[in-house]
Design a protein around this nucleic acid. Structure first.
Lengths: 339, 339
DNA sequence: TTGTAAGCGTTATCAT
DNA sequence: ATGATAACGCTTACAA
């Protein structure tokens, strides 16, 4: 790349020292009106743009934050990322985005890369497996905010949703609509949200005096394919469930695909509620009932929290509190009518 | 943030000079086996990680690329971005993502920010209005690849799809199914893809001897809301079209929402084909026919091309060729059956 | 008010 | 094979 204009060039053009040029452009310290105008004119003329990398080296900040999520392709994370970026960019921070695909190795390598890049902070939706490295980073002073998923024993601000409650509400709705055999396709094993959503399912059953039938619990991995398989398996059962609760959006699309393939009538033969409320939920036939997470708000909150953390580094930290948002059950048509 | 371990620390620990430590860790130049093992041991012990910002200052590269698109929230760009990131990260580059929202001011400010950040290259899906600045950047030596949208007079590699052909094929299909009045909701005015998709629509009409009726052309802005309005307007016409061609995914969801609200039977009362093939296309009722763009491949290609450009900087450049991919018409149910 | 010089963490040059 | 030393572009004591 062609030689950029540097402060030195500006200083020379203006006939002042590099220091003075820096002062004027950075607008700090003392300088005369005359110097100011000379420097500004020179900067303008040479089309000077500061090199924030060089500045960063000096002041030890990069004005960049790293974001690690499992996959931008899923609606929840896309929206979350958009929220993060909007806040970050408004405050002059750039966002470096990484997809871990739930792979701890990939996640680990991104964490290292972001650390080497000297990001000022990190927003992570942790997969399973790098807890100790995350702890090390955090203790080492790296501002860190977790989002969507909490890590026990890691005292950093965490923005989550009350998964258990969301799940409970959905399943409870199905039960109150008369369903007695409700299947669930769970998320990736070992991930907090999966466990919580499953827990809400179980609690709803129990509180309504229904048995927890292990055959009605199929393990998914938060991806579409496996969920489609799981749905097909449900359909092959001699005594299939009459309703399905699916724990995230990609899996819900998989389940819907399976039902459609098998020409299962929704909600008559199979009612369904999915976690996450993508734009397309009102467009399926029948329109999909969902548990909606405030994903954009989660992004903005996470980023605001991170920026606070970054400003606070060095200060004595108050022990961080989790920010827990409420998901919302949105009843459309796929869940069937209440009798 | 706590003091990071630097090369100096490693050198001291190993009892060698900083230079030697750098040589071993960077694996260049000469060093003895003994030095090597001492340095490696020290680095390991102190948990040394290079500071790529500092390195970047010295070698004038940041191993980061900037990506500016209009909005990650739309399926096409989400997938494109995923393609870019996969390639970039495999090659050790980080991706800085920015959403311009089709706003030239925002785009401009991101371009500046990325330049100041010293990114090694840029992948841009340009909105309208910063052509001259982009040209300046490119002429100034910034490796640049355009994606999805071409800029006339800017000779940089561009990865696009044959929009005109995709559009032509879709509209032609509708005509051959017996439709004579076909409405179109176009994209944002001034954007290349909008014009090309409209051109394909017009050509299909003309080649089939049908008139181009301006009342059947409604201007959208690539967003959902305005497209929904446009669809409603179509429905209010005394002589509404019998088929609709909608020029991107968010707008298609808007149109579908409108049709559903008004309980319009698809495809009987209104056939519809949308540009872009999101995951949810097979899930609507009836399943949505679409023009599918290879968005992931566009992302990987764009990034591969950019990396090539980056490696070539300085060399005499061969004049770049556009990479033009073919969109694919996917017929499902919403387009109606051929008679 | 202004300028000199040191330093941020690397790598490249040049002696040794 | 090794190590001073300078340089990358910027900020910031400190001195003038």
């Amino acid at each position: 790349m062609k030689q950029r204009t540097t402060l030195k060039d500006v200083a020379k053009e203006a006939g002042v020292s590099v220091t003075m040029a820096s002062r004027v452009l950075g607008n700090y310290g003392y300088f005369s009106e005359e110097t100011k105008s000379k420097v500004l004119k020179a900067a303008e003329k040479l089309n000077y743009r500061p090199n924030i990398i060089a500045r960063g080296l000096r002041v030890r900040e990069t004005k960049a934050i790293g974001v690690i999520i499992s996959d931008v392709l899923s609606f929840f994370f896309t929206t979350l990322v958009r929220g993060i970026e909007d806040v970050a960019n408004q405050s002059g921070y750039s966002v470096i985005l990484c997809n871990s695909d739930e792979d701890p190795k990939k996640e680990r390598s991104y964490l290292s890369a972001l650390y080497e890049r000297g990001v000022d902070g990190l927003i992570v939706s942790p997969s399973t497996g790098n807890y100790s490295y995350l702890k090390k980073l955090s203790r080492g002073g790296m501002p860190l905010v977790l989002v969507d998923r909490k890590i026990r024993g890691l005292a950093v601000p965490t923005v989550i949703v009350d998964n258990e409650a969301g799940s409970y509400e959905a399943v409870n709705y199905l039960i109150s609509s008369g369903h007695r055999r409700i299947g669930i396709i769970t998320g990736l094993k070992g991930v907090m949200t999966s466990e919580e959503r499953l827990a809400g399912y179980k609690r709803a059953l129990k509180e309504n005096g229904l048995p927890v039938d292990e055959k009605l619990i199929k393990e998914g991995d938060y991806r579409r394919e496996k969920a489609k398989e799981a749905a097909l398996e449900f359909l092959r059962m001699k005594n299939p469930p009459t309703a399905l609760f699916v724990c995230n959006e990609p899996m819900t699309s998989g389940a819907l695909l399976a039902l459609r393939e098998k020409k299962v009538k929704i909600p008559e033969q199979m009612a369904i509620i999915g976690f996450d409320d993508p734009v397309w939920a009102p467009l399926t036939e029948p329109a999909l009932s969902t548990v909606s997470q405030p994903s954009y708000a989660m992004g903005t909150l996470a980023c605001q929290t991170l920026l606070k953390e970054i400003r606070q580094t060095g200060c004595t930290k108050i022990s961080p509190e989790d920010i827990i948002l409420k998901p919302k059950l949105i009843i459309r048509e796929s869940s069937g009518e209440r009798p």
